[in-house]
């Protein structure tokens, strides 16, 4: 499902104009992104946990040329599925 399809479906379910849904969703994801810029965990019940961790700076060594680069620190994002979603998935049988 693409982003525009998702906006359309949400708009139909909530009975809101698509512009309102798109704007609200954009703002909500910005807020979530700002929260994730600080190391920590953000939980969306029913979906999973988003964890952001700062990885320290390190030195990268090129094995052939011997050049060394100082790689700056960065924030890495990890996602873990919620147990409830896993259970829902496993309860579905395929025929």
């Amino acid at each position: 499902m693409t982003h525009s399809e998702m906006i359309t479906v949400l708009s139909q379910r909530l009975r809101w104009p698509e512009e309102k849904v798109s704007e609200l969703l954009s703002v909500a994801t910005e807020v979530i992104g700002d929260q994730l810029s600080e190391p920590g965990t953000l939980s969306l019940p029913g979906l999973g946990n988003f964890t952001s961790r700062k990885s320290k700076e390190f030195i990268s060594l090129h094995p052939e040329t011997g050049e060394r680069y100082l790689i700056p620190p960065s924030i890495d994002l990890f996602f873990r599925v919620a147990p409830a979603l896993k259970k829902q998935f496993e309860e579905r049988e395929e025929e």
Binding site: M6, L10, A28, L44, L85, Q88
Partner: peptide
Amino acid sequence: TLLREWVALITENLL
């Protein structure tokens, strides 16, 4: 409301 519906839609599609 939007956040809950958004999460619900994502889980439906993942299922």
